[in-house]
Simulated assay, not measured.
Amino acid sequence: MKALLFVVCVASALASHAYIYPFNSNNVNELEGLNQKQIAQLIKYNIGLVEHISADQQKVFEQLIKTFGKGNILSPTDMNYLILIESEKLYQGQELKQQRITEGFSQSFKVMDKDPKSLLESLFGQQDDSLIKKAQKMYNQNNLGFKIYQNEDNLDINYLQWTITLYLGKNNEVYFYEPNKDKSYKVDSSLEKCVDNFFGTTFDYAPNEKKIYKYNTNEMIEITQDNEEQIIGFLKDVCAMNKLSTLFKKSNQPNMLSIINKSIAKLEKLMKESEIEMVYDMMRIAHKKLSKNLRNTFENEELFGLILVEEEKNPQLTTTKESAKVQRILMETRTRMLNQVTQTNSSGYVMNATTYQIYVWFGVFFVIVLIGIIYAMVTMDIQKDTLLYAKFLTTDQRA
Rank of each mutant, 00 (worst) to 15 (best):
V7M: 08
C9Y: 03
A11E: 09
A15M: 15
H17Y: 14
A18S: 15
Y19S: 07
P22W: 07
S25L: 10
N26L: 14
V28E: 07
V28N: 13
L31G: 04
E32N: 10
A40S: 13
Y45Q: 05
Y45M: 04
H52T: 00
S54G: 15
D56P: 05
F68H: 10
Y81Q: 08
L82M: 02
K89T: 13
Q92S: 14
G93S: 06
Q94F: 12
L96I: 13
Q98V: 03
R100G: 04
I101D: 01
M112I: 06
E121Q: 10
L123I: 00
D129G: 03
A135S: 15
M138D: 11
Y139H: 11
G145W: 08
F146N: 06
F146L: 04
Q150S: 10
N151E: 08
L155K: 09
D156E: 12
D156A: 05
I157A: 13
L160M: 06
T163M: 05
T165W: 02
L168T: 10
K170P: 09
K170H: 13
N171G: 00
Y175K: 06
P179T: 05
K181N: 10
S184L: 14
Y185R: 09
S190A: 14
S190H: 06
F198G: 01
F199P: 01
G200C: 02
T202N: 08
D204Y: 06
Y205V: 05
N208T: 06
K210N: 04
Y215K: 12
Y215T: 05
N216C: 00
T217P: 03
E222R: 08
I223G: 08
I223N: 02
T224V: 02
D226L: 04
N227V: 07
I232E: 02
F234S: 03
L235I: 03
V238A: 12
M241Q: 02
L244W: 02
T246S: 00
F248D: 04
K249C: 05
N252A: 04
M256I: 12
N261C: 05
N261W: 03
K266T: 03
L270R: 07
I276A: 03
M282A: 08
M283Y: 13
I285S: 01
I285F: 08
K288E: 06
L303K: 02
L308T: 09
V309F: 11
E310V: 08
E311Y: 08
E311G: 09
E311I: 09
T318I: 12
T318E: 11
E322G: 02
E322M: 10
I329D: 11
I329M: 04
T335M: 15
R336I: 14
M337A: 08
V341M: 10
N345R: 09
V350I: 15
M351H: 15
T354V: 12
T355I: 10
T355C: 05
W361M: 15
I368A: 07
V369K: 04
L370P: 00
A376N: 03
M380S: 14
K384D: 14
K384H: 15
L388D: 02
A390K: 13
K391D: 09
F392N: 10
L393T: 15
T395M: 02
Q397M: 12
